[in-house]
Each structure stands twice: as structure tokens, then as C-alpha cells.
Design a protein around this nucleic acid. Structure first.
Lengths: 224, 224
DNA sequence: GACAAAACAGGACAACCGGTCTGTTTTACA
DNA sequence: TGTAAAACAGACCGGTTGTCCTGTTTTGTC
């Protein structure tokens, strides 16, 4: 609605940073919603209201644009939704629990599941091009490392001695990624809670009866 | 090498079932290796050595072909590598462990990781089309149900009382799916063993020291 | 204010996409 | 054997793809 209906023929303002950000915004959203191959640069040009010349001035090829999305947006998303909250939590296990619940709550509120940005692109692109694969693998590695480091920090404070940091981190990232896959396919975020409960099975001080299954087929898979 | 150099102009043999199977074989492989959108029907025609008329006689559209791959091949792959082995195992936990180890060993032997067929297509297609999503969600559901049923069978035999069947199944499928995502992206199957170890953390009678990390960047990502 | 570089506009293009169409050959069945 | 349907071959088409290219406008710098 808030489009700028200002093709005023007399004036133009160069805003390279804003232009670049606008393209990245649209590309991030489109790659997430429809995937890389299903998003044409014509679509992106129209959605961002940007000319072909402008787009190719900032991103020479579609691959370069995707690499920028991965390096600047996907990595930031993992940092924001996972790494920072876990590091800020009282413990690794507490942080993991909080993130699972926060994501589940957010998905249930917004009514549909788009999936994990990292996993979506990782599946489509990691076999397509080595550059894509390296970039995506680095994000996965940083994600796991942050969780493992947090576990080690806990252990140096005397807590959670029996946990292997690397294994805990691998299982956490895998469980979240896989749960998001299922949640996206079923359009039901409930599986996130199931996985979290399974993950916390061995933790102490865990009472309460089994919260029964929820089944919610969500109504609006995408906004036009 | 074993191509049939027999374009003998005088003869032709109709083999509709063989033709259909040949197309499905090639499509299954291509969708797995390069994805749905990155595999053109021209590629498939060339790889299967099949004319456009023949292909479209058996599969009216590319979508119909993909649905056939999902229904007949992806579902069968899940049945073969997961459901049947778990049901045949001494217990659910034992079956899960065996499948993880078998898959990890197979991947390490073949030298590269293509990822889970179900997850690969689920990520690319479940938001693209409701028919795709429903078909893929059904396979996920059957997978989880089989594992949960096995846990319940164990419990009726007096074993593994403390495990919630649904949660265990969800976590198992999620951990495997996510681990395969990471293994595919890193081209390193070692994360499967890490996740299995984390999964078995709470199980009793589990001894042995920590088998240290392995890191193997695999050489040949695809065969020409 | 001159001027080169950066920023942007938009048309052009060859390659490719999925699907259709017409025509020929094989096969099942009466 | 006759015949209609099934199975297959291959050309064809409109639309789309990513990229390139030429030209114009803005902007920083001396």
C-alpha cells in the first residue's frame, strides 16, 4: 500500500545502499517463500520496483545475489534467533528450550510455517554449487559451535557435567532443523514442541503429565 | 556404457511399463541430485533416452511426474530404509540405532551425501503446491507412526515404559532429517553418529567412551 | 564548473522452458 | 484379418529465463 507513486520524470535520487537493501529484502523473502530456482530475477525486479540495470549493478549475477542473501541475511537470522538467545540464556539447555518455544509460539501465532531459512536454501543449493555449499556449511558450523561453547561454559561453572558438548549441539541443531522440515510440510508447528519434549527427556526436574497432541492445519499458506 | 545402440529403423517394441519405470528412475535420480526446478524435462528425456511424446504419454505434466516420484519412489525409500528395518528390529530404540549406523556407513562408503529424498523434495515443493505438500506430509506421518507404533509394541511387552511414543518418534525423525541436512551441506556423514549418540544419551546400559570426532571432506560430489 | 566514475534505466537477445500437436507404429481384441 | 486404441516419435510454439548492452542521470572530486 505504501508504494511510492513518484515516477516524477524530472528528479532522481541515487541511494545505492537503500537500493541494495531493498533488493536483498525482496530476495531474502522470495528465496524463503518460493526457493531460489522458482524466483526469477524478473519477479524480484518487479517486487522490489527496481530496474534490471540497477539490480545488475549491485549484483552481477543471480548467484552473487544468493550468496549475498546467505552471507548477510541467513547468517544474521541464525545469529538473531539462535546464537544470541542461547548465549544470553542462563544455560545452554535453558536457551535451547526458550528458542524452541519462542519459535513455536511465533509460528502458531502467524498461522503458517515457512521453514528455516538456512535449511530451505541448504537443501536446494548445497549440491548445486560448491560456493553455496561452503557458505551454508559455515553457518551450520557456527550455529553448532555456539551451542557447544555454551555447554562448555556451563560445565566450567559446574553444571551439566554429563553432557557431551559437540553431541548436544549436533542433536539440538538437527532436531530443530528436522522439526522445522516437518512443521513446514505439515503446516503444523506442534512437532516443535514434541521434539523439545523429547530433547528434554533426560534432563532432571522434569515433571508434569503428557500434554496431548495438537493438530492444527493452518489456513493461509501464503500472502498474495 | 551399456547403452542400446539399436535405433534399428525397421523395428520397435512397445514396453509401456519399462518406459514408465525408466522415466521414473531418471526423474527420481535427477530430483534427488539437482532438485525439481533445476531438472528440466529435456534433461530427463535425454538421460532416459525417451522421446517427448513417450514421456508425456505416461506423465501429462512435470507435476504429475513429480507426484508419481513422491508416491511411488520416495515413499518406498522411506519404507525400505526406515519403516521395515525398525519394525523388524528387536526394539524401537535398537531399530533406530541400526538405521542411523547403516545409513552413516553407507554414506561414508559411497563418499558423498545426497541427502534424504523426502526432505530434499519436502523443502523445495511443500510450499510450491498443496498437492505436493499433502503427499509429502503423508509420508512423514507414516514414518512417525511406524516408529511410535513400534514403541507401543515394546511397551506392551514390558520394555521402555518411560518413553512417550509420539515424542520419541517425532524426535527421531527430526534428528535424522536434520542430521541429513547437515551431512549434505557439510558433505560429512559424521554428524549422523553425533546425533545418534545424543539420542541414546538417556538410554540405560550405555557404556563406552566418547568416539572422537571425525572430519571427512568428501572428494566427489557428483558423478558426470 | 569540468569531468570521470558511480548509479541507474530499459530494451534486446539467445537459450531454454514446459506443453501441445500431428503423424506413425505397435498391440490388443473381435 | 481388420480395426481401434494404445504407445511412441519428433517437430513446433509461445512464454520465460538470466544476462548483456547502450545510453542517461546523478554524484564525488579537483
Amino acid at each position: 500500500m505504501t508504494v511510492q507513486p513518484k515516477p516524477r520524470p524530472g528528479k532522481r535520487i541515487n541511494d545505492p545502499e537503500g537500493m541494495r537493501k531493498k533488493v536483498l529484502d525482496v530476495a531474502e523473502d522470495a528465496f524463503q517463500a518460493r526457493g531460489y530456482h522458482a524466483s526469477s530475477i524478473g519477479d524480484l525486479m518487479a517486487a522490489a520496483d527496481v530496474s534490471g540495470g540497477a539490480l545488475h549493478h549491485h549484483f552481477a549475477t543471480k548467484k552473487a545475489l544468493a550468496l549475498a542473501v546467505i552471507d548477510e541475511r541467513v547468517a544474521a537470522a541464525v545469529e538473531e534467533t539462535w546464537i544470541a538467545p542461547v548465549l544470553a540464556a542462563a544455560s545452554a539447555r535453558e536457551g535451547v528450550r526458550a528458542v524452541f518455544e519462542a519459535v513455536a509460539a511465533e509460528l502458531e501465532q502467524q498461522g503458517f510455517v515457512r521453514g528455516c531459512p538456512l535449511n530451505n536454501l541448504a537443501h536446494e543449493l548445497s549440491l548445486a554449487d560448491p560456493d553455496f555449499r561452503i557458505a551454508l556449511a559455515g553457518i551450520f558450523a557456527g550455529w553448532r559451535r555456539a551451542i557447544a561453547d555454551k555447554v562448555r561454559a556451563d560445565q566450567q561453572a559446574g553444571r551439566d557435567e554429563g553432557t557431551d558438548p559437540e553431541r548436544f549441539a549436533a542433536l539440538t541443531v538437527a532436531a530443530y532443523s528436522g522439526a522445522m522440515s516437518m512443521a513446514k510440510t505439515a503446516q503444523d508447528a506442534g512437532v516443535l514442541r514434541d521434539c523439545l519434549a523429547g530433547l528434554e527427556r533426560s534432563a532432571p526436574s522434569q515433571g508434569g503429565s503428557v500434554a496431548r497432541r495438537r493438530n492444527r492445519i493452518l489456513p493461509r499458506p501464503r500472502t498474495p
